[in-house]
């Protein structure tokens, strides 16, 4: 179980010696669920340059439209905190329902959708007025939030109901429900809007859903020799813009699966840190960041070679990742 560390040390050596690391003027934010902080990483030097104390149990984080503000689900404080990404100061809070876990921002940048795990609700917040404008009843323990590229549909997953709920963002009504595997965690649209990928942590699958017919087109499952099937728990998912590949974090198996996003075949597994949870791509999609909860670090994966390059220690129990260009 110490492999994550070994890979990190090795990869760090390779990166430094070869000097092949591409230059980024990026700032990476990582929420630390247990540390109650946000780690701020300089994407160029790959060093943690700051650690900011925030609310209790920060989990899902997302950048607003112009990247000026970072929105932070402070789950145990039942609120969403707003951080100014230039001054790194907390400037406001938003009226979320109880226990916000994951949020997504409309592509137009005007609205924020958040899953309230305790209340079986999805809450809609107007980012201009910073007021709650709607609450949508969904299944038990809402979690994953995905928004279609045109902003017209939000998909929410409910962990105990085991469904993906399709919500019309004009009427705020549910227009369809799709049964998926046990404990669905994340919903992610492809960039062309033609597929929604839903990961099921306990079910061990990714359901690829046709958002028009609202049917599961394909179930992707995972298998790694020598790893017990129960440990292969899909959580975070990121799909490249051109749909050549997708990446799925597999939790306590400490691996990220690489998937052909056209054929849905699993191509490879990349060993990262312990309990890999969420994923985020840099804007140029050359690098994938993974948050590794148990080993308290993030791993950087080169998406050209699908290899782990370096791991960076962050705060305690890293969870969400957001990357500012």
């Amino acid at each position: 179980m110490k492999n994550g560390g070994k890979v990190a040390a090795l990869a760090a050596g390779v990166g430094l010696v070869a000097g092949i690391w591409p230059a980024h003027a990026l700032t990476v934010f990582v929420s630390n669920e247990q540390g109650n902080t946000i780690s701020v990483i300089d994407g160029e030097t790959q060093e943690v340059i700051n650690e900011i104390a925030v609310g209790n149990r920060p989990r899902g984080i997302a950048l607003g439209h112009d990247n000026r503000f970072l929105y932070i689900c402070a789950s145990d404080d039942n609120t969403i905190q707003v951080m100014d990404t230039e001054t790194l100061e907390l400037v406001d809070t938003l009226p979320s329902g109880p226990d916000p876990e994951l949020l997504v921002i409309a592509p137009q940048g005007d609205r924020l959708y958040v899953a309230n795990e305790d209340d079986n609700l999805v809450t809609v917040i107007d980012l201009e007025t910073r007021e709650m404008i709607a609450e949508i009843p969904v299944g038990v323990e809402p979690e994953g939030m995905g928004v279609s590229p045109d902003g017209k549909i939000v998909v929410n997953t409910s962990e105990t109901t085991n469904m993906a709920h399709f919500i019309d963002t004009d009427s705020y009504e549910i227009v369809g429900n799709v049964l998926v595997g046990q404990r669905p965690r994340i919903a992610e649209f492809t960039s062309d809007g033609s597929e929604v990928w839903v990961t099921a942590e306990i079910g061990g699958t990714v359901s690829v859903i046709d958002p028009v017919g609202m049917e599961v087109m394909r179930e992707i499952s995972f298998e790694v020799a020598g790893v017990e099937p129960e440990a292969l728990q899909p959580v975070g998912v990121k799909i490249l813009e051109d749909r050549s590949k997708a990446y799925v974090a597999l939790g306590p198996s400490n691996r990220v699966a690489v998937i052909d996003a056209q054929t849905h075949e699993v191509l490879d597994y990349i060993l990262v840190g312990q309990r890999v949870w969420q994923l985020e791509l840099t804007p140029d999609e050359t690098t994938l960041y993974t948050s590794n909860g148990v080993s308290n670090d993030v791993t950087l994966i080169d998406t050209a070679t699908d290899t782990a390059m370096v791991s960076i220690p962050v705060g305690s129990f890293p969870w969400g990742i957001a990357i500012k260009p």
Partner: peptide
């Protein structure tokens, strides 16, 4: 209650 919520969709 959990079953009813799920059942409501079906």
């Amino acid at each position: 209650d959990d079953n009813k919520t799920t059942g409501g969709f079906l």
